[in-house]
Structure formats: C-alpha cells, structure tokens
C-alpha cells in the first residue's frame, strides 16, 4: 500500500465536481467533510476506494466523493458491496446508509453482511427520521413519535442499532456523532484498520424533520451528564458517574461513585459490548460513543479468496485445457 506521503493526497482530492445538495445545516455536511479530511490518512489511492450506498439522504454521499461510487437501490447496498468486496479484495469498500435504508428495507442484508464479516466499512447515518420522503418515522424513532404518517404517535419500538449489529455477530461496532469531528475521525480510523465488517453508527442531525434529536448529548451544558466516551483501556466514567458491573447481576449500570469498569473492546464475548449498548435507550440519557467491539475473525472475503486460491493451486494446464477436460468429463463415447 502506498504511503500517504507518496500519494500526497489532501481532503480536496476527495471532493468530486458535483454540487452538494443536502439541506443547509444538515449533519451530512459535517460527516462528508470529516470523511474527506480523513481519507488521505488511509494511504489508499483514490481509484482503489469505492463508496456504495442505498437510497435516502445519506445515500447521495458517493456522488460527492472523488472515488469510485455506486448509488444503488433502497436497502441493497450491503448486498451489492458484498459481491464487489468478495470479488475484489484489493479494494477498500465503504457502505453509506441511513436508519431507514439499513434497518428497515435493508435489514436483512445488513445483518447478513455483518454475520459473514464481509470486509466492508458500513457507515449508518442515524437521524431517527425519514428525510428524503419528507418526515415519516423511522425504525430508530422513539416510540410514540408524532410524524406525518403517525399523527397519533408511532406504535412500534425502535431498534438499538448497536445491539442489533452485535446480535448479528459484528466484529467491529462503534458509534459517533456528526458534530464531533475529532471523535468521528478517530472512529473512522479504527474502522478502516479493522479487517472484516466495521459497523459505525453516526448520530446525524436532520435539521428539517427531526432537529435537535441529539442535543442532549451534544450541548455543552448537558452532554457531560449524558455522554459516555468509551476509550480502550480507560475506566468508563463521565461527569460524576461511573459505569459499573453490579454484583450478582448481568449487564452494566450507571451510578455515582463505585469502581468503574475498564473498557476493553477486544473482549471476545459480545455480551460485554451488548451490555454497554443497553446503557442507552431512545431517551439518550446515558449514551456511550466510541468503539464498543473490535475483535478478529476471518472475513468472508478472506475465506472465499482462500478457497479460490486453494482450488487454483493444484491445477495444471491452461484454462482452455482445463475447460476441455471439464466438458469431456463423465461417461463419453465417440462416433467415428
């Protein structure tokens, strides 16, 4: 892999010639700038990077990246990216999706990509609302959400995307926030370094249809009491609170004082990361951000590749000769 110095790429090199057309004030701008700013660090030539998206506001993302990109169909980006990644292990493949795209219409593809551990970096922009279709509730909207399609309040409980990804056996699971560029880029960095599926939930503000959804953990005067920063090897504390493992019970809880647990994302048992993910409900009252889980297991791409290479290692002859043998295999007879 070429070094970033050798490539001399800058954020500007990752800007395409397309005019960015999200609503003014949309959180997507901040994410785009953070991604463009971070890409040069990867040291990967632009032509070896592909962004694949589905449908929704977030999914316009590939048009704005001066890399290869496909804006596909609703919910199917993980499937399309799986075929690309499995057949082209030389590429760095990124999936950009939203809460509706990934968790509603495309829920099946997301969980199966994570289960397979396809070498994809999946960025889920979660604004807890349908933006492109103008303001219906989404699978991450809080119960009772009043929207155009639910004037009496939504009747279905939301997904916790982190819990869902962990339940799907994801090997890398993280959460970050659109407005915290430094944190966002640190999470992207860890995701990029991960071999296999990396799932990153990004809380993203939709200032038109769900403005201020994440203010509790963004505003300077409230965030210290509600936002939990997970840092590898560090005790998990925030404000006057600690995350502790209560004796004689499963899970984790937040309390004042006590001995905080020390964060270790590499714990193999997903129960730990799952317990962390359960600290936050849709009320955001105690919301961890950072890397919940980062473990190693062979990626789908790697296993598929190995099977191909093993099969090809033992062959002799040209492909045409092999084909000739294959066509004539089994019981044959000759007519003179």
């Amino acid at each position: 892999m070429a070094s970033p110095v050798a490539l001399k790429l800058t954020a500007k090199d990752f800007k395409s010639d397309q005019e960015v057309r999200w609503c003014p004030g949309c959180g997507d701008y901040a994410i785009l700038a953070a991604v463009q700013g971070f890409m040069p660090e990867l040291g990967i030539p632009r032509e070896n990077i592909v962004f694949v998206s589905g449908i929704g506001c977030s999914s316009r993302f590939p048009y704005y990246m001066n890399t290869y990109g496909v804006h596909s169909i609703h919910g199917r980006a993980p499937a399309i990216a799986t075929g690309l990644s499995a057949s082209r292990p030389d590429l760095s493949v990124w999936v950009v999706t939203g809460d509706g795209d990934a968790l509603s219409i495309g829920g099946n593809h997301l969980i199966h990509a994570l289960r397979r551990n396809v070498n994809l970096k999946i960025l889920l922009f979660n604004n807890r609302i349908y933006g492109l279709t103008k303001g219906q509730y989404s699978p991450t909207s809080e119960l009772g959400k009043i929207t155009k399609s639910t004037p009496a309040g939504s009747a279905d409980s939301p997904f916790n995307p982190i819990s869902l990804a962990l339940g799907a056996e994801a090997t890398f699971v993280a959460r970050t926030i659109d407005s915290d560029r430094k944190h966002l880029q640190s999470v992207l960095r860890a995701a990029a370094a991960h071999e296999g599926s990396a799932f990153v939930e990004i809380y993203q503000n939709c200032n038109i249809f769900n403005d201020g959804a994440f203010d509790l953990i963004k505003d300077a005067d409230t965030r210290d009491e509600h936002l939990i920063r997970l840092e590898q090897g560090q005790p998990i504390t925030f404000g006057r609170f600690s995350v502790v493992h209560p004796e004689g019970s499963f899970g984790l809880k937040v309390q004042e004082g006590g001995t905080p647990i020390v964060h270790d994302a590499t714990v193999d048992d997903p129960a730990y990361a799952f317990a962390l993910s359960r600290l936050s409900g849709s009320d955001l009252n105690t919301t961890p951000i950072g890397v919940f889980r980062d473990v190693q297991r062979p990626s789908y791409d790697e296993i598929v590749r190995k099977q191909l290479l093993d099969a090809q290692a033992s062959v002799s002859g040209t492909p045409e000769e092999m084909l000739n043998d294959l066509l004539g295999s089994g019981d044959t007879w000759t007519i003179l």
Partner: peptide
C-alpha cells in the same frame, strides 16, 4: 445484488 456488485 452481489452478482451486480461483482459485475461492477
């Protein structure tokens, strides 16, 4: 989808 991704 995967087949189309591979074609791409």
């Amino acid at each position: 989808g995967a087949a189309l991704g591979a074609s791409y």
